[in-house]
Every structure is written in structure tokens, then in C-alpha cells.
Amino acid sequence: MTPDPQRPTGDTEFIPDLPERLAGLAREGAAVVVATVVSRRAPVSAQVGDKALIHADGRMEGFVGGACSREIVRRQALLALQGGQARLVRIVPGAAPDAEHAFAERVTVPMNCASEGQSEVFLEPLLPPRLLVVVGHTPVARAIAAHAGLMGDRVWRVLDDDEVPDEPEAVPLGALTARLAALPAAQRARVRSVVASQGHYDETAIEALLRAQPNPVGLLASARRAATVRDTLRVLSGFSDADLDRIRAPAGLHLGARTPHEVALSVLAELVQLDRAGHGAAPLPVPAAPEAEPTTLPPAAGSTPPAAPTGLAAQVMGLTELPVLTGDSAVDPVCGMTVTLPAKHTADHAGVTYAFCCPHCKARFLKDPARYLTPS
């Protein structure tokens, strides 16, 4: 049989061992639609109970009708996958078509091929659970995580490495890049994230999130603070303006929220709004900064582990490798704050190592060291 040039590569008419196939797709974190013929009026080639799997790339396995019905089901399945909810598709010759919408529950599609029969196909999207990454050891971060759990999301609480002993189930910030990289691609595409550390390690977390997953990153901060974070990342991590445009700040809808739980409500409401509006589609991954190694999936068991990350994340993960200044403390040359040693943020200039209280001070120093080393 001559291959159909319109059919995606990999289309088949059979699904061997459907339960096992579905279990395997779930383990892979893949998104798929199960199509089932639930009614028919002859003459049609499909029978009640016939099934097909439609993958996110449009590839189809199984049989739910002839060439025209197959393409109708394929298109409607991809719309159902986009909306994330089931739908009933009526395929009727000569019918007036319903408007296409990702969130339609019941649609009628005209059969334009030479057929007098009609059928109804039930489409059930099976999506990996959305993963919400919540960064911060703050009341707002705890509230966001709690409410997201009630919504059925998987939640990762991400804390600075020295905060993890307080919450042993949390993900250490230094391990975030590797944990995200280990996810199947389909699951990374459904990652949502909110950085609510409120200034403690915003830049470090955002760098890891931008590099390891393709979606926007919400930042709980004022517009002024968000601008500072973007500027710091531009200097220290090499991100372009296009990369930094993925930072959504201030995160949350403008509800007049004041308490942590009210702020959590506004943040999660915005995520729902974005998903329902279809703005959650994953853009292209952020390219690695000039001096950073690109993020790759972890190797198979028994192989060489991935290289340690660079940039701000490396500073958090490798404190013992940082230059250690003499004494127990140093003065940040930018803001004058006393910094306890060993410091998380350091920079070498003219053979001298300087310590900083935060990435922002380090970025300002590197822009113009002479400004901060000239006696006033």
C-alpha cells in the first residue's frame, strides 16, 4: 500500500496490548488521547468500541474509521489535548459545523467524504499531572504549595540547601536543575513555577528554572525588584532579553491580596487563567549562556554523572570550592553590609576576592569595579 503523505510517520491501524501501552505512556509522562467509537449508523467502517491513541505529535495508533473520519478525530483529539478535557465528537454528513474550541465538550463535524453513515467518537485526554515548582521558605510559598496540592497538582517545595533539614521532603536548590532534567520531556512541558523566596535566592532559582524547563517563571516581587533580578541575571548568567521575558512578574492576579493565603489564591488563579487561555504552551528552550554548559538529560544508570552546573547554581552547590577570605566576615564593597564567610557570592578583581551579600551587589560590582573601590 502506498504511504499516505498526509499521515504522520508512525501511524498504525492496530494497538497491541492497549492497557500495557497506556501504562507505559503514563510512566513516560506522555500526553495522549484515547478515542473510542461509542455509536455508529451504517454505512461506516468503524464498529462500536473501536479505539485509537492520538499522541501529542499527531501520530495515531488504532482504528476509528476511514480516512476522512480518521483526520477529523486526529484534529479534534489535538484540540482536546490542548484544552485538557474530554469531548464527544459527532461526525455527520452534511451537518453544520460547530466552531472549533479547545474547551468544547461536544462538537459536530460535517463528513465531507462520499459517505452516508455517521458516528460518535469519545475523546479522553490523558495528561501527566502538572508539576508546580514553588521556591522559597516563606509563608506565601507554603500557602501556594498547600493550595496547589488541593487542586491536584504535584508540588515540589524548593529550598536553599541549608534550609532543607527543616523540611526533609523539599528539593534542595542545588539539585533543582538535575531533578528537572531527569523528567520526561512531556512532563517538563507541563512544569509551572513560582519563585517566592522574596529576595533570598530569587536569581539562583530563576536561572535554574529558565535553563531546565521551557515554560514561563512566575516571580513574586514588585516591578522594581523584578527589574533588578532581570538585570542581575543578564550580567551574571548571560541571558538575553528574550530569555528574561519568560519571567512573569509580579506573579498573580491583582485581587488586592494581603495575607499569604490570599496571595496564593491570586498566584494560582493566574496560572488557571493562563492555562485556560491557551497561553501555557511551551516556547523554545532558553539557549545556554555563553559561559554555561547546556542542560542535558541525565545519563543512564552506570554511566558518568553529568557535570556540575555553572553560574549562580554552582555557587550554591559548591561553597567549599569558593575562595575563602580571611577572617569570619567581610564587607560588601557595594552596599557596605557585613557578609559572613564563606560567602555564597564572590568575585575576583585584580587578584583580590570580594564577598557580596546578594547576586545584585555582585552584578553591580562587576559592571564597574572602580566605582566601588575608589575611596570616597
Rank of each mutant, 00 (worst) to 15 (best):
R190Q: 11
G84Y: 07
A26F: 01
V235E: 10
L253Y: 11
R190H: 13
H55F: 13
A307E: 14
A80Y: 12
E167W: 08
F14A: 10
G58N: 03
G327A: 03
M60K: 08
L210H: 08
G218I: 01
P342C: 06
P214D: 06
L271M: 10
C361M: 03
V164R: 05
A35I: 08
V352H: 15
D231S: 09
P260G: 02
S193W: 01
A114F: 14
P299C: 13
F365W: 04
L373S: 03
A141D: 06
E28V: 01
G238V: 11
A181F: 05
A96S: 10
S303T: 05
G152F: 07
G351M: 07
G256Q: 12
S119M: 15
A249C: 04
S69V: 10
D57Y: 05
R211G: 11
D98A: 07
G29V: 08
T228A: 02
E293D: 13
H360E: 05
D241F: 08
H261M: 14
L210V: 05
A288P: 02
G62D: 06
V38T: 13
R75M: 14
T12Y: 01
L268N: 03
P172R: 11
P168T: 09
E61F: 09
G83L: 04
T9G: 12
Y201V: 10
